[in-house]
Design a protein around this nucleic acid. Structure first.
Lengths: 119, 119
DNA sequence: CGAATATTTCGATAATCGTAGAAATATCGT
DNA sequence: ACGATATTTCTACGATTATCGAAATATTCG
Protein backbone atom coordinates (compact mmCIF):
# COMPACT_ATOMS: atom_id res chain seq x y z
CA UNK A 1 0.00 0.00 0.00
CA UNK A 2 2.05 2.88 -1.18
CA UNK A 3 -0.97 5.10 -1.28
CA UNK A 4 -2.76 6.26 1.83
CA UNK A 5 -5.98 4.33 1.95
CA UNK A 6 -7.55 6.89 4.24
CA UNK A 7 -7.01 9.61 1.70
CA UNK A 8 -8.71 7.50 -0.91
CA UNK A 9 -11.60 6.73 1.40
CA UNK A 10 -12.03 10.42 2.15
CA UNK A 11 -12.07 11.25 -1.54
CA UNK A 12 -14.54 8.47 -2.32
CA UNK A 13 -16.75 9.47 0.56
CA UNK A 14 -16.70 13.06 -0.55
CA UNK A 15 -17.94 12.17 -3.99
CA UNK A 16 -20.46 9.64 -2.71
CA UNK A 17 -23.12 12.23 -2.10
CA UNK A 18 -25.62 13.69 -4.51
CA UNK A 19 -24.84 17.33 -3.94
CA UNK A 20 -21.10 16.93 -3.62
CA UNK A 21 -20.84 14.90 -6.79
CA UNK A 22 -22.90 17.55 -8.55
CA UNK A 23 -20.64 20.27 -7.16
CA UNK A 24 -17.54 18.54 -8.37
CA UNK A 25 -18.93 17.89 -11.82
CA UNK A 26 -20.01 21.50 -12.04
CA UNK A 27 -16.53 22.68 -11.09
CA UNK A 28 -14.97 20.38 -13.65
CA UNK A 29 -17.20 21.89 -16.28
CA UNK A 30 -16.39 25.36 -15.05
CA UNK A 31 -12.72 24.71 -15.68
CA UNK A 32 -9.73 26.44 -14.12
CA UNK A 33 -11.67 29.65 -13.58
CA UNK A 34 -13.87 27.91 -11.07
CA UNK A 35 -17.10 29.18 -9.61
CA UNK A 36 -18.12 31.29 -6.66
CA UNK A 37 -19.93 29.55 -3.82
CA UNK A 38 -23.05 31.57 -4.45
CA UNK A 39 -23.09 30.69 -8.12
CA UNK A 40 -22.80 27.02 -7.23
CA UNK A 41 -25.60 27.30 -4.69
CA UNK A 42 -27.84 28.93 -7.24
CA UNK A 43 -26.94 26.51 -10.00
CA UNK A 44 -27.73 23.51 -7.82
CA UNK A 45 -30.59 24.95 -5.79
CA UNK A 46 -28.99 24.19 -2.48
CA UNK A 47 -29.20 26.53 0.53
CA UNK A 48 -26.02 28.41 1.24
CA UNK A 49 -25.34 26.82 4.58
CA UNK A 50 -25.85 23.33 3.23
CA UNK A 51 -23.63 24.04 0.28
CA UNK A 52 -20.91 25.43 2.49
CA UNK A 53 -20.96 22.19 4.44
CA UNK A 54 -20.41 20.18 1.29
CA UNK A 55 -17.79 22.55 -0.09
CA UNK A 56 -15.86 22.24 3.16
CA UNK A 57 -16.17 18.47 2.89
CA UNK A 58 -14.75 18.40 -0.61
CA UNK A 59 -12.07 20.91 0.31
CA UNK A 60 -11.03 18.87 3.35
CA UNK A 61 -10.70 15.84 1.11
CA UNK A 62 -8.46 17.82 -1.22
CA UNK A 63 -10.76 17.47 -4.19
CA UNK A 64 -11.40 21.16 -4.65
CA UNK A 65 -9.36 24.32 -4.15
CA UNK A 66 -10.46 27.61 -2.68
CA UNK A 67 -9.36 31.13 -3.47
CA UNK A 68 -10.83 34.43 -2.51
CA UNK A 69 -11.66 36.96 -5.15
CA UNK A 70 -12.91 40.10 -3.52
CA UNK A 71 -16.11 39.17 -1.75
CA UNK A 72 -16.52 35.78 -3.36
CA UNK A 73 -14.80 32.52 -2.63
CA UNK A 74 -13.95 30.83 -5.87
CA UNK A 75 -13.82 27.05 -5.86
CA UNK A 76 -12.00 24.99 -8.44
CA UNK A 77 -11.76 21.29 -9.09
CA UNK A 78 -8.42 19.77 -8.14
CA UNK A 79 -7.61 17.62 -11.13
CA UNK A 80 -4.54 16.13 -9.54
CA UNK A 81 -6.48 14.67 -6.66
CA UNK A 82 -9.04 13.23 -9.00
CA UNK A 83 -6.23 11.89 -11.09
CA UNK A 84 -4.75 10.20 -8.04
CA UNK A 85 -8.12 8.73 -7.15
CA UNK A 86 -8.67 7.28 -10.59
CA UNK A 87 -5.12 6.02 -10.58
CA UNK A 88 -5.68 4.23 -7.31
CA UNK A 89 -8.88 2.62 -8.49
CA UNK A 90 -7.29 1.56 -11.72
CA UNK A 91 -4.25 0.09 -10.01
CA UNK A 92 -5.77 -1.46 -6.93
CA UNK A 93 -9.20 -2.41 -8.05
CA UNK A 94 -8.68 -3.47 -11.61
CA UNK A 95 -5.45 -5.40 -11.53
CA UNK A 96 -5.28 -8.99 -12.64
CA UNK A 97 -8.24 -9.16 -14.94
CA UNK A 98 -9.80 -7.31 -17.77
CA UNK A 99 -10.48 -3.89 -16.36
CA UNK A 100 -8.48 -1.28 -18.19
CA UNK A 101 -10.70 1.67 -19.00
CA UNK A 102 -8.06 4.00 -20.39
CA UNK A 103 -6.50 1.42 -22.65
CA UNK A 104 -7.43 1.05 -26.26
CA UNK A 105 -9.84 -1.79 -25.62
CA UNK A 106 -12.85 -2.28 -27.81
CA UNK A 107 -15.66 -0.11 -26.53
CA UNK A 108 -18.19 -2.69 -27.57
CA UNK A 109 -18.20 -4.40 -24.23
CA UNK A 110 -18.14 -1.19 -22.26
CA UNK A 111 -21.45 0.19 -21.26
CA UNK A 112 -20.67 3.68 -20.05
CA UNK A 113 -18.32 4.63 -22.80
CA UNK A 114 -20.73 5.66 -25.44
CA UNK A 115 -23.47 7.41 -23.59
CA UNK A 116 -23.67 10.25 -26.04
CA UNK A 117 -27.22 11.05 -26.81
CA UNK A 118 -27.73 11.67 -30.48
CA UNK A 119 -30.90 13.62 -30.00
CA UNK B 1 -30.24 14.77 -11.83
CA UNK B 2 -28.75 12.29 -14.16
CA UNK B 3 -30.19 8.86 -14.40
CA UNK B 4 -27.08 6.93 -13.62
CA UNK B 5 -25.84 9.30 -10.94
CA UNK B 6 -27.47 7.30 -8.20
CA UNK B 7 -25.76 4.17 -9.34
CA UNK B 8 -22.43 5.96 -9.28
CA UNK B 9 -23.11 7.39 -5.83
CA UNK B 10 -23.96 3.93 -4.54
CA UNK B 11 -20.75 2.53 -5.93
CA UNK B 12 -18.66 5.37 -4.53
CA UNK B 13 -20.34 5.09 -1.16
CA UNK B 14 -19.75 1.38 -1.09
CA UNK B 15 -16.04 1.82 -1.61
CA UNK B 16 -15.79 4.76 0.75
CA UNK B 17 -15.43 2.56 3.79
CA UNK B 18 -12.33 1.00 5.23
CA UNK B 19 -13.58 -2.56 5.39
CA UNK B 20 -15.47 -2.50 2.13
CA UNK B 21 -12.56 -1.06 0.21
CA UNK B 22 -10.36 -3.76 1.73
CA UNK B 23 -12.91 -6.40 0.76
CA UNK B 24 -13.03 -5.23 -2.81
CA UNK B 25 -9.28 -5.04 -3.16
CA UNK B 26 -9.01 -8.51 -1.70
CA UNK B 27 -11.54 -9.83 -4.20
CA UNK B 28 -9.71 -8.16 -7.06
CA UNK B 29 -6.55 -9.89 -5.93
CA UNK B 30 -8.40 -13.17 -5.59
CA UNK B 31 -9.40 -12.97 -9.22
CA UNK B 32 -12.31 -14.68 -10.93
CA UNK B 33 -12.28 -17.56 -8.47
CA UNK B 34 -13.33 -15.21 -5.72
CA UNK B 35 -13.34 -15.93 -2.02
CA UNK B 36 -15.73 -17.39 0.52
CA UNK B 37 -17.25 -15.03 3.05
CA UNK B 38 -15.52 -16.83 5.87
CA UNK B 39 -12.15 -16.57 4.19
CA UNK B 40 -12.65 -12.85 3.72
CA UNK B 41 -13.65 -12.43 7.34
CA UNK B 42 -10.58 -14.27 8.51
CA UNK B 43 -8.27 -12.43 6.13
CA UNK B 44 -9.49 -9.04 7.28
CA UNK B 45 -10.15 -9.84 10.91
CA UNK B 46 -13.73 -8.66 10.80
CA UNK B 47 -16.55 -10.43 12.67
CA UNK B 48 -18.84 -12.46 10.48
CA UNK B 49 -21.93 -10.39 11.08
CA UNK B 50 -20.10 -7.16 10.36
CA UNK B 51 -18.58 -8.58 7.24
CA UNK B 52 -21.92 -9.81 6.01
CA UNK B 53 -23.26 -6.30 6.35
CA UNK B 54 -20.50 -4.93 4.17
CA UNK B 55 -20.72 -7.73 1.64
CA UNK B 56 -24.42 -7.06 1.26
CA UNK B 57 -23.66 -3.38 0.80
CA UNK B 58 -21.16 -4.05 -1.98
CA UNK B 59 -23.46 -6.59 -3.56
CA UNK B 60 -26.39 -4.19 -3.51
CA UNK B 61 -24.21 -1.63 -5.26
CA UNK B 62 -23.36 -4.18 -7.92
CA UNK B 63 -19.67 -4.11 -7.21
CA UNK B 64 -19.39 -7.75 -6.25
CA UNK B 65 -21.07 -10.94 -7.34
CA UNK B 66 -22.29 -13.81 -5.20
CA UNK B 67 -22.48 -17.47 -5.96
CA UNK B 68 -23.06 -20.41 -3.70
CA UNK B 69 -20.65 -23.29 -3.72
CA UNK B 70 -21.90 -25.98 -1.42
CA UNK B 71 -21.92 -24.50 2.04
CA UNK B 72 -19.93 -21.40 1.20
CA UNK B 73 -20.95 -18.22 -0.53
CA UNK B 74 -18.26 -17.18 -2.95
CA UNK B 75 -17.90 -13.49 -3.65
CA UNK B 76 -16.18 -12.09 -6.71
CA UNK B 77 -15.29 -8.59 -7.81
CA UNK B 78 -17.45 -7.26 -10.62
CA UNK B 79 -14.93 -5.74 -12.97
CA UNK B 80 -17.51 -4.30 -15.27
CA UNK B 81 -19.06 -2.20 -12.54
CA UNK B 82 -15.67 -0.95 -11.48
CA UNK B 83 -14.90 -0.24 -15.09
CA UNK B 84 -18.10 1.75 -15.38
CA UNK B 85 -17.25 3.67 -12.23
CA UNK B 86 -13.78 4.58 -13.43
CA UNK B 87 -15.23 5.46 -16.81
CA UNK B 88 -17.72 7.80 -15.22
CA UNK B 89 -15.08 9.52 -13.14
CA UNK B 90 -12.79 9.86 -16.11
CA UNK B 91 -15.48 11.29 -18.33
CA UNK B 92 -17.44 13.43 -15.94
CA UNK B 93 -14.83 14.55 -13.51
CA UNK B 94 -11.78 15.02 -15.69
CA UNK B 95 -13.14 16.49 -18.89
CA UNK B 96 -12.19 19.91 -20.10
CA UNK B 97 -8.84 20.26 -18.48
CA UNK B 98 -5.68 18.31 -17.94
CA UNK B 99 -6.70 15.20 -16.13
CA UNK B 100 -5.68 12.21 -18.15
CA UNK B 101 -4.05 9.71 -15.79
CA UNK B 102 -2.32 7.33 -18.15
CA UNK B 103 -2.74 8.89 -21.53
CA UNK B 104 -4.62 11.45 -23.52
CA UNK B 105 -5.16 9.09 -26.38
CA UNK B 106 -8.84 9.69 -26.48
CA UNK B 107 -9.28 12.96 -28.32
CA UNK B 108 -12.59 11.79 -29.66
CA UNK B 109 -14.24 11.58 -26.28
CA UNK B 110 -12.48 14.27 -24.37
CA UNK B 111 -12.39 17.08 -26.84
CA UNK B 112 -16.08 17.17 -27.50
CA UNK B 113 -16.94 16.91 -23.84
CA UNK B 114 -16.90 20.60 -23.21
CA UNK B 115 -20.52 21.34 -22.74
CA UNK B 116 -23.14 18.84 -21.88
CA UNK B 117 -26.27 20.44 -20.65
CA UNK B 118 -28.96 17.83 -20.41
CA UNK B 119 -29.01 14.12 -19.94
C1' DC C 1 -33.23 -37.16 10.93
C1' DG C 2 -29.62 -34.80 13.53
C1' DA C 3 -25.05 -32.79 14.12
C1' DA C 4 -21.72 -29.73 12.04
C1' DT C 5 -20.45 -25.96 9.10
C1' DA C 6 -21.10 -21.41 6.66
C1' DT C 7 -23.38 -17.31 6.45
C1' DT C 8 -27.12 -14.19 7.14
C1' DT C 9 -30.57 -11.69 9.72
C1' DC C 10 -32.09 -9.58 14.01
C1' DG C 11 -31.64 -6.29 17.63
C1' DA C 12 -29.72 -2.74 20.16
C1' DT C 13 -26.41 1.01 20.50
C1' DA C 14 -23.08 4.63 19.52
C1' DA C 15 -21.42 7.51 16.03
C1' DT C 16 -21.63 10.09 11.97
C1' DC C 17 -24.12 12.61 8.28
C1' DG C 18 -27.24 15.89 5.89
C1' DT C 19 -30.14 19.74 6.50
C1' DA C 20 -31.22 24.57 6.90
C1' DG C 21 -32.39 28.75 9.62
C1' DA C 22 -30.01 32.10 12.35
C1' DA C 23 -26.00 34.43 13.76
C1' DA C 24 -21.27 35.58 12.82
C1' DT C 25 -17.36 36.81 9.83
C1' DA C 26 -15.15 38.91 5.81
C1' DT C 27 -14.98 42.16 2.03
C1' DC C 28 -16.35 46.01 -0.82
C1' DG C 29 -18.41 50.56 -2.02
C1' DT C 30 -19.74 54.99 -0.50
C1' DA D 1 -17.85 53.96 9.90
C1' DC D 2 -21.96 52.15 7.78
C1' DG D 3 -24.68 49.33 4.90
C1' DA D 4 -24.75 45.79 1.42
C1' DT D 5 -23.02 41.52 -0.32
C1' DA D 6 -20.87 36.78 0.06
C1' DT D 7 -19.95 32.98 2.68
C1' DT D 8 -19.13 30.48 6.78
C1' DT D 9 -20.03 28.84 11.44
C1' DC D 10 -23.34 27.70 15.00
C1' DT D 11 -27.04 24.97 16.45
C1' DA D 12 -30.37 21.55 16.66
C1' DC D 13 -32.53 17.54 14.94
C1' DG D 14 -33.90 13.54 12.16
C1' DA D 15 -31.82 10.00 9.26
C1' DT D 16 -28.43 6.91 8.18
C1' DT D 17 -24.33 4.01 9.23
C1' DA D 18 -21.15 0.79 11.53
C1' DT D 19 -20.71 -2.58 14.98
C1' DC D 20 -21.21 -7.25 16.79
C1' DG D 21 -23.32 -10.86 19.82
C1' DA D 22 -27.10 -13.90 19.48
C1' DA D 23 -30.49 -16.27 16.95
C1' DA D 24 -32.00 -17.92 12.52
C1' DT D 25 -31.34 -19.87 7.94
C1' DA D 26 -29.15 -22.83 4.43
C1' DT D 27 -26.24 -26.81 3.17
C1' DT D 28 -23.58 -31.02 3.66
C1' DC D 29 -22.46 -35.34 5.82
C1' DG D 30 -23.10 -39.50 8.81
Amino acid sequence: MHVDANRIIDALGSLAQEHRLAIFRLLVQAGPEGMAAGAIAEALGVPNSSLSFHLAHLHRAGLIGQQRQSRSLIYTADYESMNALIGFLTENCCAGSGCAPTAQTEPDTLSTRKQRKTA
